[in-house]
Simulated assay, not measured.
Amino acid sequence: MATPRKTRQTTLEGYVAPAKWNEDGQVTAVAIQTDEEEYLVDMDTLGQELLDYLHEDVEVTGVVTLDANGVFRVQVSNYALLDDLFDDEDEEDALDAAEAYEWDDDDLDSDDDDDDDDDYRPKMR
């Protein structure tokens, strides 16, 4: 008699990547792509929901197994979208960069003379 394998919940952060397509080119299966590995998602109810979030950053909790072909699989028990978190950080970085320079009057000068039309100076803080 085989002994049952212990399973435990694992949390992964990555993005939802297409993994399989049908003959019409529609995505039929997804994987969670992390920095280290790719985890093929079991396409149960929650797996089907992830089809709506292709290329989105997610945090997925579930049971991870390694199948006979050496492919990591995850049966998702919970997930959360992380996209808003990363978008806010990117927007803040862009604002910080834009605020780092102060344009002078020559920057607004659109004539073709040789004065420093695109001269900018770092702000003094």
Rank of each mutant, 00 (worst) to 15 (best):
Y15S: 04
D111S: 05
N78D: 13
K123V: 15
T10W: 11
G47Y: 09
N78S: 14
A29E: 07
E92P: 00
T7N: 14
L81D: 00
D67K: 10
E92I: 14
D115I: 02
Q75A: 03
Q9W: 09
D57F: 08
R73S: 04
T10Q: 13
V64K: 00
V60N: 10
A98Q: 14
E102L: 10
Y101Q: 05
E56T: 02
A17K: 06
Q48G: 04
E59I: 05
S110T: 03
D42Y: 06
Q26K: 12
L50Q: 06
D52H: 10
D24P: 04
D106C: 12
H55C: 01
R125I: 05
D104E: 06
Y120L: 10
I32D: 00
L46N: 04
D117T: 02
V64R: 01
E56Q: 12
L12P: 01
G14N: 00
T28H: 02
L95A: 08
E92C: 05
P4K: 14
I32L: 05
T45N: 08
D96E: 11
K6V: 11
D83C: 03
L82F: 07
Q9P: 04
L46Y: 05
D52I: 03
D84V: 10
E37F: 15
D90Q: 15
T61N: 03
T10N: 13
D93P: 03
A17I: 02
A2C: 08
E38F: 13
Y79M: 09
V60C: 06
R125Q: 08
E92G: 06
Y101C: 05
D88E: 07
A97H: 09
D88F: 08
I32E: 00
D111Q: 06
D90M: 12
D44N: 14
A98S: 12
F86I: 08
E99M: 13
D107I: 07
L54A: 00
T28W: 06
A94N: 11
F86N: 08
